[in-house]
Write a protein that binds this DNA or RNA. Structure first.
Lengths: 155, 155
DNA sequence: TAGAGAGTTGGAGTGCACTCCAAGCAAGCG
DNA sequence: CGCTTGCTTGGAGTGCACTCCAACTCTCTA
C-alpha cells in the first residue's frame, strides 16, 4: 500500500510513507519482520529500534504470542521517514513530538505541517551554509595544491 | 596581513586565514583581543575558547604579564576556519589532528591537503543527502497542504 | 584605595543519541 | 535433551562537545 491509495481527504494516521512506489531492498513483503531484519534494512541497531519505541518515536509495534516484535511494512515506512529526518539533523525530541501529533489524529495536521515546514527551512539554510564552506575549502585546498605543485617542480 | 602577502612557495604555519580580504565585524585591529571580545566576535563562549586551547585545537595564545590571554588577528583567522569546519560537522578530534599538523610544519602539507579534501567530499555528499531529503519533505508538506486546503474549502 | 567586573585554573557536570549489559525466555536442530 | 541463536527487559555506560563551578587574581573607574 502506498500513499497514492488514499481516499481523497484522508491523511493517514500512522505510517505515512515518504513517497509512493515500491521500496527496494525490503525483505520480501511478509509484513512480519523481526527486529534484526528491520535493523538490517534500516541500518539502525536493534538496541536503537527498542529505544525508539521506549521514547515514543515508534508507534506501538505488533508482538507474537511470546512477546517478540514483528514489524510491518507500515512500520518500515515510518522508519524511512524518521531516518530521513535524522539525516537532516532533526533532534529526536522534535521527531517524538511529531510522532505524538500523528498519534493524536487529524486535528494536529496543521501543526504537523508547520513543524515540517520549519524543518525544511532549516535544511535549506544548512545547505546554503555548507555551500559557502565548500568555497572556503576549495580556496584552501587550492593553496595546498599549488604549494605541492611548486615543491614537486623544484621551483 | 592576509594570505596574499606570502612569499611564493610559502605555506603559513599558523593562522592560515580562510580567504583574503578584510574581515568585517572584527573589533578594530588592535591585534590584542581579550577572551570576551573574541567570544563576542566568534560566537563561541569563553569557556569553549579555553577548552579549545586545552585540547590543542588552538595554537598557543599570547598572554599579558599577568597571564591573561590576548588574541591576535591570526588567532581570529584560525578561529574562522575552525568555525567553518565545525559548521560542516567535522569532529573536533579531526580538527585537532589538523591543528597538530599545522604546528608540525611544512612536511605535513600533503597530509593536510588530503584531510581537507576528504572532508570536502564528505560535505558534498551531505549536501546531496540534504537535497534528496528536501524532496521528501516537499512531498509530505504538499500532502498536508492539500489536506488543509480541502478541509478549509469544506469539500 | 575600595569595589565591580573580567580574567585564571582543574575538574566536575550536562544533554544528546545512542550503546551495552546481565539475566532470562523461546525456537529450531541433531 | 542439550545447544546455539535470537529475542526480551530495565537500567547503566559511552562518546562527543561543550558548559559550569569554586576559588581565586587582576584591571579599571570613582
Amino acid at each position: 500500500m502506498t500513499v497514492l491509495d488514499h481516499a481523497p481527504g484522508e491523511v493517514r494516521d500512522r505510517a505515512e510513507p515518504c513517497r509512493p512506489g515500491p521500496k527496494p531492498g525490503r525483505p520480501q513483503g511478509r509484513d512480519r519482520y523481526t527486529i534484526s531484519e528491520v535493523a538490517e534494512y534500516t541500518g539502525l541497531s536493534a538496541h536503537t529500534l527498542r529505544w525508539y519505541e521506549r521514547i515514543g518515536l515508534m508507534p506501538h509495534v505488533d508482538r507474537t504470542h511470546t512477546g517478540q516484535r514483528r514489524y510491518t511494512d507500515r512500520d518500515l515506512d515510518w522508519l524511512d521517514l524518521v531516518g530521513r529526518l535524522r539525516l537532516t539533523g532533526m533532534p529526536v525530541a522534535d521527531m517524538v513530538r511529531y510522532a505524538q501529533m500523528v498519534r493524536e489524529g487529524e486535528h494536529t495536521v496543521a501543526a504537523r505541517e508547520r513543524l515540517l515546514s520549519a524543518h525544511r527551512d532549516d535544511v535549506r539554510r544548512r545547505i546554503a551554509e555548507l555551500r559557502s564552506t565548500l568555497d572556503v575549502l576549495d580556496y584552501k585546498i587550492d593553496i595546498y595544491a599549488d604549494a605541492r605543485r611548486r615543491a614537486s617542480e623544484g621551483v
